[in-house]
Design a protein around this nucleic acid. Structure first.
Length: 587
RNA sequence: CGGGGCGUGGCGCAGCUUGGUAGCGCACAUGGUUUGGGACCAUGGGGUCGUAGGUUCGAAUCCUAUCGCCCCGACCA
């Protein structure tokens, strides 16, 4: 340890906001090189290698073969797939000395598909599952949260190549199971959620979320059944209509200067459920853009992913004030569906059920009350457009849904033929015909997994590593290394434990005990052996668990066996579940 | 890119409003006293105040530009 390159910091660097970032910096695991670009110091690199190793074993077990593809990639194949233009600014682009275009790989669909199309020609060559563990580069709009969102990061990416849909299904499920095993083996609490497929393309998709309050992703799940989805995707169940109230006559009311839902409801003395919000969005398509009006209940939020999918746009954004004025004839805050013309109107499922609603009057400082769907206004389409909320009925079983947060550490996609068609990756089938290879892609962010592990496992003193990814299982701390008796005992224990296959580090620094204890806690080694006069008086040594702080006094002779038992107990046991019974989410 | 904030020894900060030639704590080095939860005393090394211009007798401080970093939003492993 006196030789270890792991500079610890007593104070929190100002740039670090989240716990994992703070502790990984303070404990000397990482250092920042530039925004979203990190160097991994010895301890950090040991953790990453342990994660990689578990990932590697499970990929191999699931039929994967490891390859290593170039990070530096020629523009041609990206132009061929169409993503040279579509991927946008996130692609790190560069030129070589001959002015030829290259990019740094943000992902490797193009490269691997190019490789496979050259080398695979027959159905006999399929299926194949190829993966690598490699550095990716993405010029993120905003790198943040330390290792959670980086511009350069290590990713395990596997690509599956199958003959047909059934083959893809098999590959997908194999990966699904492998991912579950990986995150269990890592000792992390996680949830698998249905996900929207996003920019990479394709159809089905699941995300593996490590549960942590600091997570960027919101998870909607049901405790009664196994439904779980991320917020973008989560379907809101039908709500029982409440139409007992008789419809009253529609009326204009002045609402001077009241734009927001809070202001209007407070002014009119109604609840937000009584209000129907009208939001004007700008839907952007490949060749054009158009405004759309979206109606949701006053207490709900529009789900932009659902909206984007509903209108089939590349993306959607809230309209600015001038567009709102143009569409509604009123300033922002007074848009309403009554008499709204020349714009596509979409309403959330709940909206028609709001009886005697409050809506904007499409005039400055005017709202309408007692507005009723069907009689006073109509939407072109009525569909699920809002974010799910806690307490909503589960779309599967109707039980109330719950929300929690998580960090997305793994993502699996069914790509289908998106890339094989673009790049012409075909094989000759048994039927003598050419077919497109059916693909899937499966990623795990390695440094992000490390950060997620810290987010989930820490206390006020520092990191508490799960055994499988701790840089060392045990740290031996002699209270005073200068005392020969302590030094001898510490060193002999170190030799014995190391010989017994226990990953051990010894704090031989000339520091006071308190400093060594603080650093050991900060760095998060799951076990600590303290060699000091207190226990030595009785001829014993202390074994302390980092997680709960409990201390065991052990005879010198039983140390190795006890440590091994603790480690054994610290590794999650995987019941060998190959039945697939637990993956009902796949339906 | 839009909005907000910050750049002063390795880390955390003060000084800037009201210009006068840089300071505190931690860390580091040496010596001593200490030694079971981030010790104490003494001494010492280290900063062209992000960079470039400008104003001024004089700029960390005022002005302009520029670069970098962090936070909030659209993206994603």
């Amino acid at each position: 340890m006196s030789r270890l390159f792991a500079p610890t910091l007593r104070e929190v660097p100002a740039e670090a906001e989240v716990i994992s970032h703070q502790y990984l910096l303070r404990a000397g695991y990482i250092r920042k090189t530039a925004a979203g670009i990190y160097s991994y110091l010895p301890l950090g690199w040991r953790v990453l290698r342990k994660i990689e190793q578990i990932v590697r074993e499970e990929m191999d077990r699931a039929g994967g073969q490891e390859v290593f593809l170039p990070a530096l990639q020629p523009a041609e194949i990206w132009q061929e797939s169409g993503r040279w233009d579509v991927y946008g600014k996130e692609l790190f682009r560069l030129k070589d000395r001959h002015e030829r275009d290259f990019c740094l790989g943000p992902t490797h669909e193009e490269i691997i598909t190019d490789l496979v199309r050259r080398e695979i020609s027959s159905y006999r060559d399929l299926p194949k599952r190829l993966y690598q563990i490699q550095t990716k580069a993405r010029d993120e709009i905003r790198p943040r949260l330390g290792l959670i969102r980086c511009r350069e990061f290590i990713m395990k990416d596997l690509y599956s190549f199958d003959r047909d849909q059934a083959g893809l299904e098999e590959s997908y499920q194999a990966m699904y199971r492998a991912y579950e095993r990986i995150f269990r083996r890592l000792g992390l609490r996680f949830k698998v959620v249905e996900a929207d497929t996003g920019a990479i393309g394709g159809k089905d998709s699941h995300e593996f979320m490590v549960l942590a309050d600091t997570g960027e992703g919101v998870i909607v799940y049901c405790e009664a059944c196994d439904y779980a989805a991320n917020l973008e995707r989560a379907v809101t169940g039908e709500v029982v209509p409440d139409l007992t109230e008789p419809a009253k006559e529609m009326q204009e009311v002045p609402t001077p200067g009241r734009h927001s839902v809070e202001e209007v409801t407070a002014y009119l003395g109604v609840t937000a459920e009584r209000l129907v919000k009208t939001l004007i969005y700008r839907a952007i398509y490949r060749d054009r853009e158009e405004p759309v009006a979206v109606l949701v209940r006053g207490d709900r939020d529009v789900n932009e992913t659902k909206l984007k999918n509903a209108v089939g746009a590349l993306f959607v954004e809230l309209a600015d004030a001038s567009l709102v004025q143009e569409v509604t004839g009123a300033p922002v805050g007074f848009a309403g569906p009554v008499g709204l013309k020349n714009v596509r109107i979409l309403a959330d499922l709940e909206v028609p059920r709001v009886v005697n609603a409050v809506v904007g009057g499409n005039k400055a400082d005017v709202h309408l009350i007692n507005v009723n769907y069907g009689r006073d206004y109509q939407a072109g389409e009525v569909l699920d457009l809002r974010n799910a909320a806690a307490g909503d009925p589960c779309p599967r079983c109707g039980a109330p849904l719950q929300l929690t947060r998580g960090i997305e550490v793994g993502h699996i996609f069914k790509l289908g033929t998106k890339y094989s068609e673009a790049l012409g990756a075909t094989y000759l089938g048994e039927d003598g015909q050419e077919h497109y290879i059916i693909m899937g892609s499966y990623g795990i962010g390695i440094p992000r997994t490390m950060a997620a592990a810290v987010e989930q496992n820490h206390d006020a003193d520092g990191i508490i590593w799960p055994f499988p990814i701790a840089p060392y299982h045990v740290i031996i701390v002699p209270v005073n290394y200068a005392v020969p008796e302590q030094q001898e005992l510490a060193e002999s224990l170190y030799r014995e434990l190391t010989a017994a296959g226990v990953e051990t580090i010894i704090d031989d620094r000339d520091e006071r005990a308190g400093v060594k204890f603080k650093d050991a806690d900060l760095m998060g080694f799951p076990l600590r052996i303290t060699v000091g006069p207190r226990a030595l008086k009785e001829g014993k040594v202390e074994l302390r668990r980092r997680a709960d702080g409990s201390v065991m006094l052990l005879e010198r002779s039983e140390v190795v066996a006890k440590v091994k038992a603790e480690i054994q107990a610290g590794y999650p046991k995987l019941e060998d579940e190959n039945t697939g019974a637990d993956i009902g989410v796949l339906g």
